[in-house]
Lab assay of single mutants.
Amino acid sequence: ETGKELVLALYDYQEKSPREVTMKKGDILTLLNSTNKDWWKVEVNDRQGFVPAAYVKKL
Rank of each mutant, 00 (worst) to 15 (best):
E1V: 13
E1Y: 04
E1L: 09
E1D: 14
E1H: 13
E1P: 14
E1K: 09
T2H: 14
T2R: 10
T2N: 14
T2P: 12
T2I: 13
G3I: 13
G3Y: 13
G3W: 13
G3R: 13
K4I: 13
K4A: 11
K4W: 11
K4Q: 11
K4H: 12
K4E: 09
E5F: 12
E5Y: 12
E5W: 13
E5M: 13
E5K: 09
E5H: 12
L6H: 09
L6N: 06
L6E: 07
V7T: 03
V7H: 04
L8M: 14
L8K: 07
A9F: 01
A9N: 00
A9S: 05
A9L: 02
A9M: 02
A9I: 02
L10A: 04
L10D: 02
L10G: 02
L10E: 04
L10R: 05
L10P: 00
L10F: 03
Y11F: 13
D12P: 06
D12F: 04
D12I: 02
D12T: 06
D12Y: 05
D12A: 06
Y13E: 00
Y13A: 01
Y13C: 02
Y13G: 00
Q14E: 14
Q14V: 14
Q14T: 14
Q14I: 14
E15H: 09
E15D: 05
E15A: 15
E15V: 06
K16I: 07
K16A: 11
K16Q: 14
K16E: 08
K16L: 09
S17V: 04
S17F: 06
P18A: 12
P18T: 10
P18G: 09
P18N: 10
P18M: 10
P18L: 09
R19E: 12
R19N: 14
R19A: 11
R19D: 12
E20H: 06
E20F: 07
E20R: 04
E20D: 05
E20P: 05
V21S: 02
V21T: 05
V21E: 00
T22Y: 04
T22A: 07
T22H: 04
T22S: 15
M23V: 09
M23P: 00
M23S: 00
K24V: 09
K24W: 11
K24P: 00
K25L: 05
K25V: 07
K25M: 08
G26P: 00
D27V: 05
D27A: 08
I28V: 11
I28D: 00
L29W: 03
L29Y: 10
L29V: 07
T30V: 15
T30C: 09
T30H: 10
T30L: 13
T30S: 09
T30K: 12
L31R: 01
L31N: 00
L31D: 00
L32Q: 03
L32Y: 04
L32H: 06
L32K: 05
N33I: 08
N33M: 08
N33F: 07
S34Q: 10
S34V: 07
S34G: 11
S34L: 04
S34H: 08
S34N: 08
T35E: 14
T35M: 10
K37C: 11
K37D: 11
D38C: 15
D38L: 14
D38K: 13
D38T: 14
W39A: 02
W39M: 06
W39T: 02
W40F: 07
W40P: 01
W40L: 04
W40I: 04
W40Y: 07
W40H: 02
W40V: 06
K41W: 14
K41S: 07
K41T: 08
K41P: 01
V42T: 01
V42G: 00
V42Y: 01
E43N: 06
E43I: 09
E43R: 10
E43T: 07
E43F: 07
V44I: 15
V44M: 15
N45M: 12
N45C: 13
N45G: 15
N45S: 11
D46R: 09
D46V: 06
R47V: 07
R47Y: 05
R47Q: 07
Q48C: 11
Q48W: 08
Q48V: 14
Q48P: 05
Q48Y: 07
Q48I: 14
Q48K: 11
G49K: 02
G49T: 02
G49R: 02
G49F: 08
G49M: 05
G49A: 04
F50R: 03
F50V: 07
V51G: 00
V51Q: 00
V51I: 09
V51E: 01
V51D: 01
V51T: 02
P52H: 02
P52F: 03
P52C: 04
A53D: 01
A53Q: 05
A53T: 06
A53S: 14
A53P: 04
A54S: 14
Y55N: 05
Y55M: 11
Y55D: 03
V56P: 00
V56K: 01
V56M: 06
V56L: 15
V56T: 04
K57V: 15
K57I: 15
K58P: 10
K58V: 12
K58W: 08
K58R: 13
L59K: 04
L59A: 05
L59I: 14
L59T: 06
